[in-house]
Structures are given as C-alpha cells and as structure tokens.
Design a protein around this nucleic acid. Structure first.
Length: 271
DNA sequence: CCCGGAACCTGAAGGC
DNA sequence: TGCCTTCAGGTTCCGG
C-alpha cells in the first residue's frame, strides 16, 4: 500500500528512466481505472507527448507532459508502476510505450488505482493538505489544523485534505513515536504533544524514504526491487508482536474500520 | 462544515 | 480437501 515514502521512491527511481522520453502509444487494458477524460480520449491525448518532468504530491504521481498537460497516477492499495518489465503480469492495466522501446506498465491486482490526463493538475490534487516534509509545514501549522478537528487523531492524520501522503501504516508509526493514543480527539493535544507528533511524522516518513519504502503486500519499485522500511516498523502490521519500548503486547483496534496497531502502555488514552 | 460508515475491488487467509 | 466468509485500506460518496 503505497504511501508518501513509497510514492517518493517510485518517483526517484522512475525519473531518470522516463524524463526526456516520448510516449509513442498508450494502451488501456482496464478502462474503469481512467478517471478523466474518457479512456479513448486518454490514450489519444497521450500519443506523441514528451515527458518533461515527474513530481509527487501526497500519494499522487504527476507526469508533466508537453502541451502543458499532466498525466496523474494514484496507486491506491495494490498498484505499481513497472519500468520495462520482462513480461506483463495478468494485472497489467495500462501500458505506455516509450520512444526508446521501453514500456512503462501500470499494474494493479485490485483495480482500485486511478489515472487522469488533465491540463490543470489542481483539478486532481488541489484539495490536498500540506506536504509534511516541506518547509512551510511547521508545528504551528499542525496545531492550527488540529484545532479544527474533533475526530480520532488516527483518522485525522490519514485524511489527505488534512495532511498529504500519510496513510494507515505511517500514521501508526508516527503515533507510536509520539506516544499518543490513536483515539485521542485531534483537538485535545497539548502543545508538547503537537510538537512530538510533528517531529514523529517527519521522522517516520524520512526513515521510510531512506529505506526505499515498505514492502508489505504488493509494493515493488519500478525496477522490481523491494523496500525495507517495514523491517524497522515498531508497531505497524506487527500483530502479536511486542513493544520495543516497554516489552508489552502490541494491540490492534479498528479506527474508522482501519486496522490500527499501537502499544496501550506507551500510548495511553488518559494520563 | 464535520463526522462516520458503506462501497469500490479481488486475492489471501481462516473457519468448518 | 474444498467451499464459504471475512479481511485488507485509499478514496469517494452519502446520510445524519
């Protein structure tokens, strides 16, 4: 399940392979995954476009194209972008043929991923919250955002309009790192807790990027390699594991129907 | 506006 | 062994 560190890794690995190339032909194998425009206009519009740049915004990947257009991809749960794979898996959903003979393949077991071709990228990514690793995201900005929300903190930091790029597993890691219970109302954090959360979010995301992402479920890098961030996870996906801080058992509770891992001793709901 | 739950989707895992 | 149900979670949509 690609979150910010995984999408950042994909961008970094893909950029030297696609920037400067031209898409000679696009094939859509699963039309339902094209959000805008129609699948037919999507393939037609991509033919002959040069890839000028590659950017990430939250969990979205933005291909900047000639003609002032952008192709945007979201991998959702099980999507992956493969650069020139030796063979197509049954889960190939779209294939982009490049002018050097390479193929860029969007594969996705569950077909939840999405593709767009737009002139204004803001139509797709315009409502996203701040980039957690950017300079203009500060503890003060986080505090101001938290004040407006009373929902459980876990749900709030996974909300892309609140903060861009944090998903289920890095949210669990950040809350553990900050020693805050996932069910705490977002607007109940003290100043000190807000600062700890701010630091924790940035630490776990940077750690994820330096490990090239977490290969839980189907995440693979464009060249076929995996990531190792999951090996450093302290609570996320560690069902039946023990807390590295206190040695107690890691608990799993549903929050907004999402599996949430935490240490009930280190992350208390009330002091 | 904000919150919570369902729907989308399909392979893996667990129960009987 | 095999069928059936449940689970996984990012996003969007809808009702309260």
């Amino acid at each position: 399940m690609p979150e910010l560190p995984e999408v950042e890794t994909i961008k970094n690995e893909l950029a030297p392979r696609v920037i400067g190339r031209t898409i000679v032909r696009a094939e859509v194998l699963s039309p339902n995954m094209v959000s805008h425009p129609s699948p037919r206009e999507f393939t037609k519009g991509l033919a002959g476009k040069a890839i000028r740049g590659l950017e990430r915004r939250g969990k979205y990947l933005i291909f900047r194209l000639s003609g002032n257009e952008s192709m945007i991809a979201h991998l959702r749960m099980t999507g992956a972008l493969m650069s020139n794979p030796v063979e197509l898996t049954p889960y190939a959903r779209a294939v982009f043929h490049l002018d050097n003979g390479d193929r860029l393949v969007f594969q996705d077991r569950r077909k939840l991923g999405k593709l767009w071709l737009v002139t204004d990228a803001a139509e797709v990514v315009g409502k996203l919250g701040p980039e957690p690793l950017s300079a203009d995201f500060t503890p003060e900005v986080l505090a101001a955002l938290l004040k407006k929300r009373s929902a459980p903190l876990k749900a709030v930091i996974c909300d892309q309009e609140f903060l861009a790029g944090v998903g289920n597993m890095y949210a669990d890691e950040a809350l553990f790192e900050a020693r805050i219970h996932p069910l705490r109302p977002a607007n109940s954090l003290t100043r000190a807790e807000t600062k700890r959360l701010f630091d924790a979010v940035r630490v776990v995301l940077r750690q994820g990027i330096s490990c090239l992402g977490a290969s839980v479920d189907t995440y693979v890098r464009p060249g076929g390699g995996t990531g190792t961030a999951h090996l450093c996870f302290k609570v996320a996906h560690r069902r039946g594991g023990t807390c590295p801080r206190c040695g107690g058992p890691i608990e799993r509770i549903p929050v907004r129907n999402r599996g949430t891992y935490f240490c009930p001793k280190c992350q208390r709901l009330r002091a």
